[in-house]
Each structure stands twice: as C-alpha cells, then as structure tokens.
Simulated assay, not measured.
Amino acid sequence: MTVFEQLQQRRGELGRTLQNLSSLTAMSVPQVSNALNGRTDSRLSTLEALADAMDASLVVVPKHLMPELARLLSGKTIGPDDVASTVDRFLEGH
C-alpha cells in the first residue's frame, strides 16, 4: 500500500474532509487533495503535516523488517503461532 493510499485510508477512518485537513494544515483544499492523491510531487514535510493532522506518523522502515512490522500491525504476536498461552498451559495442568 502506498503512502498516499495509507493517508487516504486514515482520512476515511477518521471521517476527515479535505476542508478539515486544509484548516488543520494551513494548506489550500486543492493542495491537500493533490498531495493525498499523489498528483503532485509533494514535499515530505507536506505529507508529514497531513499525517500529523490525522494523528498519524510517517515512518521509514528497512525492507528486511517489513514482514515483522506487517505481522505486528496485523495484531499477531511475534513468534510461532502454535505456542500455547500461559493461561492455556495452566488450564492443561488442571
């Protein structure tokens, strides 16, 4: 998913309008729209301001760490999937 798609998704989750983001970032509505859609070669500071206005952060992640990050963001714990929880192990003994 591109950074533009992520910002659009976040905007949808929050129900933010272009006008609302325009007010929060002091950018014009067309500038916000163009930046969110990747129609212009936006500065990183523009994308950071939009992310900040949506209570999010832009992060650079080394490619070799992406599988771990994707797993973490999906809500899965790091490690084998078949390891019983502490509660499961306790209940097995009783």
Rank of each mutant, 00 (worst) to 15 (best):
A53Y: 02
G75L: 01
L21D: 07
A35H: 11
H94G: 13
E13Q: 14
Q31L: 05
A35G: 13
T2A: 07
R43A: 12
T25Y: 01
R11T: 10
V87Q: 10
G38S: 11
P80W: 03
S33C: 12
S33H: 15
L21M: 11
L50A: 04
T77L: 04
H94Q: 12
V32S: 07
Q31A: 08
S22Y: 10
P80I: 09
L69P: 06
D52G: 09
T86W: 09
G79M: 02
D81I: 05
V61H: 13
R16I: 06
A53S: 11
Q31S: 04
A70P: 02
A35V: 15
R43Q: 06
V61W: 12
T2N: 06
L91Q: 07
V59P: 10
S74Y: 01
E48W: 00
L7K: 00
M1S: 11
T86M: 04
E13V: 11
R43P: 04
Q6G: 08
A56Q: 02
E5I: 03
E5K: 05
R10Y: 04
R16Q: 11
I78R: 07
L72S: 13
T77H: 11
M27H: 12
A53K: 06
A26K: 14
N37G: 00
H94L: 09
G75Q: 03
M54I: 01
T17N: 03
R16S: 13
K63I: 08
G38W: 00
D82V: 08
G38H: 02
H94I: 11
R71N: 14
L14G: 07
Q6I: 01
L36T: 01
T86I: 10
R11Q: 15
A56P: 02
A35I: 13
G15D: 10
F90W: 13
T77V: 08
D88G: 00
H64T: 12
D52M: 09
L72A: 12
L72T: 14
P30F: 00
